[in-house]
Amino acid sequence: MESEISLTVDGVRHDLVVDTRVSLLDALRERLGITSPKKGCDHGQCGTCTVLLDGRRATTCLALAVAHDGADITTSAGLESGGTPHPLHQAFLDHDGFQCGYCTPGQICSAAGMLDEAESGWPSAVTTDLARDPVLDAEEIRERMSGNLCRCGAYVNIVAAISEVAGRRSA
């Protein structure tokens, strides 16, 4: 069974016909050739496929494309504006927050979504005072970024990179 859908990815609209079994990740990678989101497990266990889906971070391997007709998707590539890297891109470069780079676009999309969540006052499992806006210290960042695995073991640099961006946003 096939369905016609449209997806807007990094500001560009795509109309496509998909088998209803196609995941959003495979629609991006195999149908549209958009490979910034990666496939690491296909089961929502590693986070490499994370994008911003209608503004919120989401694992695209767990989403069916047909269920997201009309969605607005931002990949890590789309976080750049006019050739200028996003502050998270720059911070990951500055802190060497990656090695092989395969989990990195997902880490960056996840971090972008996570910063917005925290700014909106969303608590995490380690937030102690639910009445106040959470402060993104290292423990909060580690907890909130634990859906994105990195086998190269760049976590301490990832946390340093995100801390720097979080600090600037809250300053």
Binding site: T35, S36, T75, A77, E80, H89, F98, P105
Partner: peptide, 21 residues
């Protein structure tokens, strides 16, 4: 020195094996 392949990796423009068109 920052990695020469860094910008391609953070944006996801770097093409891994199965990503070559």
């Amino acid at each position: 020195r920052v990695r020469v392949d860094g910008a391609a990796k953070v944006t996801g423009r770097a093409r891994y094996a199965c990503e070559h068109p």
